[in-house]
Design a protein around this nucleic acid. Structure first.
Length: 111
DNA sequence: CCGTTGACGCCAT
DNA sequence: TATGGCGCCAACG
């Protein structure tokens, strides 16, 4: 089977590898893929991920730990609810202890 | 085909 | 320290 090296697919695979109860940022994924300045594209890929299954987009937030994309979920509470269901505390759309639950693909994974 | 927008991030002021 | 602007890549009108 052949895997597409498309940037989108790369993003999807990294997002799927995010452990439960952990989160990461768009920039971290982009940087991990070698496109640190293309963090926007990561977010765009997430937008398209909603048609895909197995993409825990709720575990991906901006570098501030803010749930910037919650509005793109089925409901505004879906993202926060999903995060809290995994033990992640969210307050005012912002992840608490963000640096503690932050999952860095650069350290956990290997290019 | 060209212009605008977007679930971001960094730099400059 | 806070606010604004630019860059980057892809999709949409």
């Amino acid at each position: 089977m052949k895997e597409k090296n498309d940037f989108f697919d790369q993003v999807y695979q990294v997002v799927r590898l995010i452990p439960k109860g952990r989160v990461t940022s768009y920039g971290a994924i982009a940087k991990y893929l070698g496109a640190a300045k293309s963090s926007r594209v990561v977010g765009y890929a997430m937008n398209a991920s909603h048609v895909m299954e197995g993409i825990p987009a709720h575990r991906v937030v901006n570098r501030n730990g803010l749930l910037t994309g919650k509005m793109h979920f089925e409901t505004s509470d879906a993202m926060q609810n999903a995060l809290e269901a995994e033990g992640i505390k969210v307050k005012e759309n912002q992840i608490q202890n963000f640096e503690k639950v932050f999952w860095n693909p650069m350290e956990e994974l290997e290019i």
